[in-house]
Structures are given as structure tokens and as C-alpha cells.
């Protein structure tokens, strides 16, 4: 099975941020705003951490 690790991470971030946004906010507009911010946070933090770990060998 070939799966992109990045794609899986994006999918994970999308699903988790969707559930959290719907749990935390009641209005659809607020849910969308919270979800987008959370999703962006997930992706950007993962991206930055990925690059920070890049020089270190396993």
C-alpha cells in the first residue's frame, strides 16, 4: 500500500480540527473559522517541526 505520509497527516489534521471546531463552537461561521485556524496550526507546526528534525539522523 503506497500512501503519502504528508497526505495522511493532512487528512488527520482535517478530521481532528473538524471535530474540535464543531465541539467547541455553536455557530457555523465560528465553527468554520475555528476549524480553519486549527487546521492551519496543525499543518504549519508539523511542517516546521519536520524541517527542524531534518538535520538529525534517526
Amino acid at each position: 500500500m503506497t500512501t503519502s505520509h504528508f497526505l495522511l497527516m493532512v487528512l488527520y489534521a482535517l478530521l481532528v480540527s473538524t471535530v474540535f471546531a464543531v465541539l467547541l463552537r455553536d455557530q457555523p461561521r465560528e465553527q468554520l473559522k475555528t476549524g480553519v485556524m486549527m487546521f492551519g496550526g496543525f499543518i504549519s507546526v508539523a511542517y516546521v517541526l519536520g524541517w527542524l528534525m531534518f538535520p538529525f539522523p534517526l
Binding site: T18, V19, V22, P28
Partner: peptide, 9 residues
């Protein structure tokens, strides 16, 4: 709305 989103995701 909340229930359907949880039911799917």
C-alpha cells in the same frame, strides 16, 4: 448539524 458531522467524521 453537530450530530451529523460526528456521525460522518
Amino acid at each position: 448539524q453537530k450530530g451529523l458531522i460526528f456521525l460522518v467524521t
